[in-house]
Design a protein around this nucleic acid. Sequence first.
DNA 1: TAAACGATAATGAACGTTCATTCATTTTAA
DNA 2: TTAAAATGAATGAACGTTCATTATCGTTTA
Lengths: 196, 196
Amino acid sequence: MDKRTQILIAAESVLAERGFYAFSMQNLADTAGVAAGTLYRYFDSKEALMNELQKFIREQSANIILAGFNECSTTKNKYDLVWQNIFDYVIANPRRLTLIEVLHCIPNVDQADITLFENEAFKPLIFFYQQGINTKQFLNWQLFALIAVSIDTAISLAKQVIRERVAPDQKQLDQVRDASWNIIQNPHFKPTGIIQ
Amino acid sequence: MDKRTQILIAAESVLAERGFYAFSMQNLADTAGVAAGTLYRYFDSKEALMNELQKFIREQSANIILAGFNECSTTKNKYDLVWQNIFDYVIANPRRLTLIEVLHCIPNVDQADITLFENEAFKPLIFFYQQGINTKQFLNWQLFALIAVSIDTAISLAKQVIRERVAPDQKQLDQVRDASWNIIQNPHFKPTGIIQ
DNA sequence: TAAACGATAATGAACGTTCATTCATTTTAA
DNA sequence: TTAAAATGAATGAACGTTCATTATCGTTTA
């Protein structure tokens, strides 16, 4: 593994273990197994490092969440896969969501740049929703409004699980997932006969 | 206003304006209009201050979100009010949600204690959901699973708005809200005739 | 083949700054 | 007059960053 990646991984682990206040470049260097000065060969500053970390995490997240997406045959299969991927991912990486949010709120970071980056990473999912709208299978809402009430429920539910306020079994998970699927369906949709 | 509250309000404003890394006790003291030493009359340490800030914000949030709740006559009215309150609140305080998440992730904080505190603050809302379950008006799901797919959509949507990925008008807002309401309704529910 | 070389990578002590916290002193208010 | 509240300079620790030095390694030279 190249050293840059090694440092980024260490950075996330330090943030997860010690929090945002206790994070220091010296600590990061120790954890990454490099000298403090070495950090500055790969990153201009602490702030720059945080920005790079943000992109790194977002890209990795997108890859994990969309894993297997193109292999799914039907629209519903795709949805089920992504919903479950997101749920599993948030559960498996409980701190990551917060980390993303925090990194997203650091001053002097070009938010638009990050959003652009994220839209690129999640392109297949956005295309999926756009197609659902175009074919009138989904409600004729703005795309991210659809997302907010459907796939985002995987995040909301996972968060509640992490806080130990709910402990759903797989059957309950399927129920929530299907309910979130149904909510965005256009009631007047007539399938064309082609596999949806 | 008592000095303690004055300091907490200043603390949030410093966090919002300068971010988590630039936050310092000296800066807080200046913003609050007190001397640095005064902070330590009201809070044991920086960490303790952050914990208190967390509780302060959560309590205030609950009050705002539940404002007018008891004055609503029907179940749907209550839901609409809270959904809109949450949406408006997130839009009006875009940093606050992140702040809550970050404060929630500071090490050495008793998470269970915070959750307990929050459950107390949001008691009326939790009671509202529990009653919906008991009367079979809502689906027979675990309470926080219901929350994740219904009222949490107000948060999800507001977040998308903040990121400028969607710009809903009131009509669209109503649609989303009603969809999130419908999703948790028990299809076999028979109203008793009493006002719901 | 081995030695010499240059370029790139890595080091960690040192620097100036800023941090959270303390406490002797002063101000406030009853 | 007195106790409580507030002050802000002082403190030592920790911070991000720098840079002279050292190590590494592929290429060239003898």
